[in-house]
Design a protein around this nucleic acid. Structure first.
Lengths: 332, 332
DNA sequence: ACGCAAATTGCATCCGGATGCAAAAAAACT
DNA sequence: AGTTTTTTTGCATCCGGATGCAATTTGCGT
C-alpha cells in the first residue's frame, strides 16, 4: 500500500552504479558516459523515478518557484494578469506561488510570506513599503514591481506608460473637437492614478485644450455611477469623460444613459481603462486602454532571473506602450 | 554583502545550546524548558532566524503547499474562486501553488506538474482523466475535485447542488405563472451543465410545466447573443430563458433588448448563473444563482487534510446548496 | 536526604540530491 | 608500449531541520 516514491539510491542500486551517477544523469551538465546514462535511465524508467524537487531545492538553494503577489480586482484585469503570468512561467521551469491582496491594503505581509516560502523571486502588483522592499534587497531575493513604485535601490520596475497613453488620448480628443474633459480619478489613489492624471493634463496643454476637471470617485462601478449623478445635468457641459479604470467608467455610462438620459458618444464621450471584458459587451462597447500585460509579466520575470544570476547591477525601470481601443463610446 | 540567512546551527551556537534545542523550540510539540526556549528565541530574534521551509519539507515529507488547478474563466467566477481558496488557505499554514488551465482542455498535465512539485494535496476544478486520478491515489496525494466528476475510488468530490437549485428555479417560475422555458446549455458540456439541465427538467415536471426547450449555445457572451438572434422574434414565445452560465445570459439579454426590442422581464425573464459582478450592474441587474464558493473550497481543503492524516476511508461526495439571487431580470 | 519517575537535552542519523575531490578508467599522444 | 591528458566514477560531505534514543537533569514523594 505505502508505495513510497523511489529515490536516487533505489535507482542507483538497480542500475548497479553510485547515487552520484544517477544525480549526474539527471543534471543538465553532469558528466556521465552514455553506458551509465542508459543504465540509469532504464532503471529510473522501471521504478518511475523523478528527482525530488524539495531535495533539489535544499541542495541548490533555489526553490524553482516564483512568488506572485497580486491585487484582487474583481472586475478588472486580474484574470488577464494571472493568465499572462502563468503563460510566461509555463515556458520556464518555474512554478507559481500565489498570494492575493486586498487592493486597499499594503502587500508587505504577502511579500513576507513569499520570502518565508523561499520563492526565488517575487513579482508584485501591490503597494509595498520601502522597509519590506529593502528586506528583499538585503536577503538577495529579486523583487520586481509591476505598475507600482518604491524608492529603494535594487528593485526593478516594469509598468505601462500610463502617462504617455493619456497624453495621446488628449490629442485624439482634441482632433475630434472635444474641449472640456472630465477625469474620474480613483479615491484609492496611487502611482498609476497619478500618472494617468498627469498625462491627461499634459496632453490637454500640448493640444491647446483647457485643463481637464479632476473629479475624485469611489473606485468601483457604483462609485462612478454615483459620482455622475452628483453632477446631474451639468455633466452635459463636458465633451468627454475619462476614467482611471473600467468599473468607474461603466458606472458612469449607466448613470449617464439610464438616469440622465444622455447619449453616448453624441452628448458625451466615455473612455474607460484596462479593457475588461465587460466593456466589450454590446450594451457598453466602451473605448478603453489596453495594457500589454503579457509582455509586462514576461519582462518582469526575465528581470528577476537576471538578478538571480547576478547579471544586473543597475535598477531597471521599464515602460510598455498601452493601446487605445476605440469603440463606440468614444470613436477616437 | 552576501548576508546568508542564519540557520538553526547559528542560533544554537549563539544561544549556547544544541541544534536540536532550536528545532524543538520551533516545533509545536517540542519539549524544551522555558529557560532554553527563552535563550533560543532571543538568539533567533537577534539573528532574524526563520526555519527554512524547504529543509522542513524534506525532513517532514510534507511541502506545506496546496496545489490548486483551476480553469480560466475570464468573465465568470474565477476571481471569486481564487479569492476563496486564498482566504481558506490563509487560515492554515499552507501556501498556494497555482496552475491555470484552458476550460476546453483536460487538466491532466497540470495535475502531473503539481505532483512533480510535491504539493501535499491537489484541489482541482478541471476535467481530469481517470488515469491521472488513479495516479494521485497511487502516490497518496489527496485529490479533491470541485464541480467535476471522475469515477475513481479514493478521490473526494465537492460540488454545488446544481440540480437542486435548478429544480427550485423551475418551481419559482411556475409560481410566477411562467410556463415555457428555454434552457441555454453550453456547447462545451460537462457534468455541471448536465446537472443543471437535468434539474431544470425535473423541476418543470414536478411543477407541472412542459419540459423546457434545450438549446445549445457557444459558451460565451457572444454565443448567447447569437443564439438568441437565431431564434428571432419567435423567442418571444418563451416566458423565461435560463442559462447554464452568466456570460451567455448577458449576451442573451443584450440580443433580446438591443436587437429584438423585447422587454425584460415583462416579455421574457432571464436567469443567469454564477453571480458574476457584471450581472449586478444596473443595466443588467440580472437574476442569477450563486454558489457557496468559499464553503466549497474550505470543505475541499479540509477533506484533503483528512486524507493526508489518513482519517478517511470512504470517498466523500458532498453538495452545497446554491442561492437564487433575485434581481429585476426575473423577479422570483 | 534518598529513590524513582518524568521532563529535558544532546548525539547521531535521516530526509534526497548535488558536488568537490581524488582515484580509476579511457582516450590521446610520443 | 609508455606516458600524459581528459573523462568517468565513487566517496564523502553538504544543504537545514526533525527526531529516536540514551544520557542527564529536574521534580516529587516519603
Amino acid at each position: 500500500m505505502n508505495k513510497l516514491r523511489p529515490t536516487s539510491y533505489d535507482v542507483a542500486r538497480l542500475a548497479g552504479v553510485s547515487q552520484s551517477a544517477v544525480s549526474r544523469t539527471f543534471s543538465p551538465g553532469g558528466s556521465a558516459s552514455s553506458k551509465v546514462r542508459d543504465k540509469v535511465l532504464a532503471a529510473a524508467e522501471e521504478l518511475g523515478f523523478r528527482p525530488n524537487p524539495i531535495a533539489q531545492s535544499l541542495s541548490l538553494g533555489r526553490s524553482k518557484m516564483v512568488g506572485l503577489v497580486i491585487t484582487q480586482f474583481t472586475q478588472k484585469n486580474f484574470p488577464v494578469a494571472l493568465q499572462s503570468a502563468v503563460e510566461v512561467l509555463g515556458r520556464t521551469s518555474e512554478s507559481l506561488l500565489l498570494q492575493i491582496t486586498n487592493p486597499e491594503s499594503m502587500g508587505d505581509e504577502a511579500i513576507a510570506k513569499m520570502m518565508a516560502d523561499r520563492a526565488d523571486m517575487i513579482i508584485s502588483t501591490t503597494e509595498i513599503s520601502p522597509k519590506t522592499a529593502q528586506l528583499c534587497v538585503d536577503e538577495n531575493v529579486p523583487l520586481v514591481l509591476i505598475n507600482r513604485r518604491v524608492d529603494v535601490s535594487g528593485i526593478d520596475h516594469v509598468a505601462s506608460n500610463h502617462r504617455g497613453v493619456m497624453r495621446k488620448l488628449a490629442h485624439r480628443f482634441a482632433a475630434k473637437g472635444a474641449k472640456r474633459l472630465l477625469f474620474l480619478e480613483a479615491s484609492h489613489k496611487g502611482w498609476v492614478n497619478d500618472e494617468r492624471k498627469t498625462g491627461l493634463i499634459e496632453g490637454c496643454r500640448e493640444a491647446g485644450l483647457p485643463d481637464p476637471v479632476i473629479q475624485m470617485s469611489k473606485y468601483s462601478y457604483l462609485g462612478g455611477f454615483e459620482t455622475v449623478l452628483e453632477y446631474g445635468k451639468t455633466i452635459g457641459d463636458f465633451d468627454a469623460l475619462v476614467s482611471a479604470n473600467d468599473p468607474m467608467a461603466l458606472g458612469a455610462m449607466d448613470a449617464l444613459r439610464l438616469r440622465l438620459g444622455l447619449r453616448i458618444p453624441s452628448d458625451i464621450m466615455v473612455v474607460g481603462h484596462d479593457n475588461s471584458p465587460i466593456g466589450r459587451m454590446f450594451s457598453y462597447n466602451m473605448t478603453t486602454v489596453e495594457q500589454q500585460m503579457e509582455q509586462i509579466f514576461s519582462k518582469a520575470i526575465e528581470l528577476g532571473f537576471e538578478r538571480l544570476k547576478n547579471r544586473k547591477a543597475d535598477d531597471t525601470n521599464l515602460f510598455f506602450e498601452s493601446q487605445i481601443i476605440s469603440r463606440s463610446s468614444a470613436p477616437l
